[in-house]
């Protein structure tokens, strides 16, 4: 049924080139990491605790959200629910990579998913839409993003925020602009555009009327349903 013929070979040289490809955006990730580190020590986490969290969790939005719940104690179930809800987009990202990932042996398949995050996934997804198979960016790009998140957190916990007003410089919009550029860089067939309209509408409805942090999954699944019923006239080969 699955992985009968593992045939995707991760190329070390390509992993290195994808590491460098994401180096520029990683510099911005350092700034966000510093903001997290500063916020964490202000909430009472020890520097090493905040750093450990960044190293093993590596999911910025959910780490910030956890700080909002911080006190003398942290309620267990709400903590798990918030972390799961915010990070549930990873479920969809991992699923979307499955047609490529199934060609890796399980150890490598799940190994590279450890560093799956928005930016490296967006590039892999865009490359796939354009007919290029690029799992190396998940590993190489993920490693540079992870390293930047670690370095940023360390700077934040020991030296405070790097910039006084990152917002006034527009730096809070780096990831949003990056993801938008990736979305618009893919193929734009009528089918894709209808899926986007449905996805955006469903996401807004969920954002307004459903529990917090559900809008990404709701919107993405709604867009996926369009693709389920409206098939491409000609199958898109690899």
């Amino acid at each position: 049924m699955m992985s009968d013929h593992p045939s995707y070979q991760l190329e070390p040289a390509k992993v290195r080139s994808q590491f460098l490809r994401l180096l520029p955006i990683s510099l911005f990730v350092v700034a966000f990491g510093a903001a997290f580190g500063l916020a964490a020590v202000q909430k009472g986490l020890a520097p090493l605790e905040a750093t450990l969290m960044s190293v093993v969790v590596f999911a910025g939005a959910s780490q910030f959200a956890t700080l909002e719940m911080w006190g003398n104690e942290v309620a267990l179930l709400p903590l798990m629910a918030v972390v799961f809800a915010i990070n549930s987009r990873h479920l969809l990202m991992g699923a979307s990579l499955f047609p490529m990932l199934r060609e890796l042996p399980p150890f490598k398949r799940y190994g590279i998913l450890v560093v799956l995050t928005d930016a490296n996934w967006a590039i892999a997804a865009q490359d796939y839409q354009n007919g290029r198979r690029n799992l190396e960016v998940i590993l190489g790009g993920g490693l540079v993003l992870w390293f930047a998140w670690l370095v940023g957190t360390l700077l934040g916990v020991y030296f405070g925020g790097l910039l006084q007003e990152p917002r006034s410089l527009g730096l809070d919009m780096v990831l949003g602009c990056f993801l938008l550029a990736m979305a618009l860089g893919g193929r734009k067939t009528p089918r894709v555009l209808v899926a986007w309209v449905v996805s955006g509408g469903a996401a807004m409805a969920a954002y307004w009327w459903l529990p917090a942090h559900t809008h990404v999954v709701v919107g993405a699944l709604a867009g996926g349903i369009v693709g389920f019923f409206w098939l491409e006239p000609k199958p898109h080969g690899h």
Binding site: L92, A220, G223, G224, F228
Partner: peptide, 13 residues
């Protein structure tokens, strides 16, 4: 078809 449409829809959402 579902996977491909869902992938870019994640970004839009």
């Amino acid at each position: 078809g579902f996977i491909n449409a869902m992938a870019s829809s994640v970004l839009i959402a």
